[in-house]
Nucleic acid binder design. Structure first.
Lengths: 345, 345
DNA sequence: CTGTTAGCGCCTTCAC
DNA sequence: GTGAAGGCGCTAACAG
């Protein structure tokens, strides 16, 4: 049987309350007594039963999640994963609030962070936009002792506790490597389609893509980046023009969202099969395009994992517990038509 | 505040004990009373606090894990992940026993399953070898009400509750697709190196590889399968001979273990760069070979995830709880040199 | 500074 | 059939 507080109390010859004070290092214990208790803890190999402690404290974990609104399929998937987690949150003593802000809107995001702060949560998870006012707002939260996890897109220099997302430089490198190898000796330039250079994840992917292309496929020309604002209609227009301008285009790397527009443009131009296309995020549209051959490979971040990881980390931080880095690393999924999971996740 | 058993008791006008009987549908309650309690539960939206219940029951989860012994790096990694999970098992009320059996040894495995059965665990996780006596032993366990999870290699038809491993047919398909696309128009046959056709995962990978090769790369010749028993020395000998026999070999798919031998043979023959190689499992050796370019792509199953998933599922089954399928799906990681995680997991 | 006491939400004897 | 009482391991008031 595992030792309990009673065993320690007996071993150290003190009362339960004193043991508790030592365990939670609260003041009001002479150092002699404290030492005796600590020795007892060590010799008995005591480990606190967190479940029982939480029960006694009737502890709960108020968390705030800040997500971009809009029709971005990936973000909506993220939100639905979050709502699913909330539905089973009763058992986990979670109390989650969702705040919505327009995408790529730094002032709105900063305001939401202030709003979150007023609610005095144990932790905040936020899909970050990189801007000084956002960084400032996150810093303030951290100073208040609220743990902050950035989700999907990071915010370096803000002092956030953790980033729940993929290594986007590596993702860009991987895309570049795959595109280069898939194209083999084929001639023609490649294009990069981004959402906005305001978000860190898009910038990182671009950097990785460019690095690997110049290292390993130096002869391949990379056309200037197109920014589609993750907006399918705009993307369709821009890619349509791109295809007209470049009849010899060999490949496209779409590192942001708005894939619906990309797919439409490729198919309308009859170039779906001849242009090697690599895109991000598994959504109903991109899945169909992968199966039909319009998209050749898809890089994905598992929204469910990101949400669960963010929650686990926020909880651990709230309890002052360490996080298992390996478990919280969000991997880059690479999907070909051959390893697509059966169901949409 | 969430409703508790007290609230239900009050609402239904009965005592705590009766509420408890209904909750755990134990006998000794008139159906009228039972109905009243159930109505109270429904109207108050009660959900039982599992943590508190476990505390009161001082419940624990005795589990048995059966792993192959030997120097297979992947299996040793799996074991170390398991030991890590055991080290933090105190908080999770887990009581895990590890049983070791020689690899590919069906009688020994069947005996271990009987041994496990005698310990009356709540659940068993086993790396299966496909053989009638093993299937039989697993069936018996299930009949005893012990939940069984197959780990890494599945055992269809045994009635196991869950498989914690990757879709190996899809893995084989993915390998075939990557190899085909990486080779492009290059001439020459490809070889397949397996461990043993006795384990389901190897057979499944081969099936997937052959399927995609004949569908999408029909002109590519696939040489007869080589079985290296996951033994590095044997593998090195066999691959050395293979390379001599086939000076025009374009690619190798290594679907089992023993990659140390494969890498050595390729490098000794000076064919490390000229033969496109796809292998399984991230280990220190395969990682180095990926970085040096001897291996072109690595398919991996995350041992840590498999172990944690097996534990979660076994625990859920023991409590009669449903499992979240999406969360427990073990994905096929695809590693290029560009998306290799920094540290060995 | 230290100890006593009464719970947290649930389960389990043992009476009635 | 049903209920009352005590306890799981820990924490938090309130006394001393």
């Amino acid at each position: 049987m595992r030792p309990t507080v009673h065993d320690i109390a007996a071993e150290a010859g003190v009362s339960l309350a004193t043991v508790d004070r030592v365990l939670n290092n609260r003041p009001g214990v002479r150092s002699v007594t404290r030492n005796r208790v600590e020795r007892a803890i060590a010799t008995l190999g005591y480990v606190r039963d967190v479940a029982a402690a939480n029960l006694a404290k009737s502890r709960s974990y108020p968390l705030v999640f800040i997500l971009p609104s809009g029709e971005n399929a990936f973000m909506r998937g993220l939100e639905s994963e979050l709502r699913f987690a909330m539905s089973r949150s009763a058992a986990e003593r979670l109390d989650i609030t969702i705040l919505s802000v327009p995408a790529f809107d730094a002032p709105a995001l900063a305001a939401a962070l202030l709003d979150a702060r007023k609610r005095r949560p144990a932790g905040v998870a936020v899909v970050a936009v990189e801007a000084p006012e956002v960084t400032e707002a996150v810093k303030r939260l951290c100073e208040d002792g609220v743990s902050v996890v950035t989700l999907v897109s990071d915010l370096p220099g803000s002092g956030r506790d953790h980033f729940a997302g993929v290594d986007n430089v590596a993702a860009g490198r991987t895309a570049g490597s795959l595109l280069g190898r898939f194209l083999g000796g084929r001639e023609g330039p490649v294009a990069v389609l981004a959402g906005s250079m305001l978000v860190r994840d898009h910038r990182d992917r671009l950097e990785g893509f460019r690095a690997v292309t110049s290292e390993d496929f130096a002869s391949r020309q990379v056309l200037p980046v197109i920014e589609g604002q993750d907006n399918p209609l705009l993307v369709e227009k821009l890619v349509g023009a791109l295809l007209e301008r470049n009849p010899d285009l060999a490949g496209i790397y779409s590192l942001g969202a708005g894939n619906r527009g990309l797919i439409a443009a490729l198919e309308k131009a009859g170039r779906a099969k001849s242009v090697c296309t690599i895109a991000h995020e598994l959504t109903p549209h991109s899945r169909a395009a992968l199966l039909s051959g319009t998209i050749d490979a898809l890089l994905n971040q598992n929204a469910g994992h990101e949400v669960r990881s963010a929650i686990r980390v926020l909880k651990a931080k709230a309890d002052g517990l360490p996080v298992i880095a390996a478990q919280e690393r969000i991997r880059i999924d690479i999907f070909l038509k051959d390893n697509l999971p059966l169901e949409q996740e």
